[in-house]
Amino acid sequence: MARSVWKGPFVDGYLLNKADASRASGRNEIIRIWSRRSTILPQFVGLTFGVYNGHKFLPVQVTENMVGHKFGEFSPTRTFHGHSADKKAKRG
């Protein structure tokens, strides 16, 4: 069942403080978080979080189309021996 709309999105409170502090510092930094359950909010766009997957902090660069998803969705917990094949990457 979906979460009731009147509650608003769930986010651990300390994430907001960390995001504010990171944005104010203006530095190139990664915000380490363990809160995989928190919803990605619009004010997180542009920041980079290191989301713990039980093993390491995977960098998650928050973009607009990630808003509304949970942090944990972008930091898989299972070992992935992926095949890069013909996939390409541009530097963000």
Partner: peptide, 26 residues
């Protein structure tokens, strides 16, 4: 090289210490 939909990140293996994970940004 990790790519789970939240930007590409590189895992740098270092000798003697744990791996370093960096986002693939300029």
């Amino acid at each position: 090289v990790h790519d789970y939909g939240a930007g590409v990140s590189l895992e740098i293996a270092r000798e003697g210490v744990g791996p370093l994970l960096v986002p693939f940004t300029r």
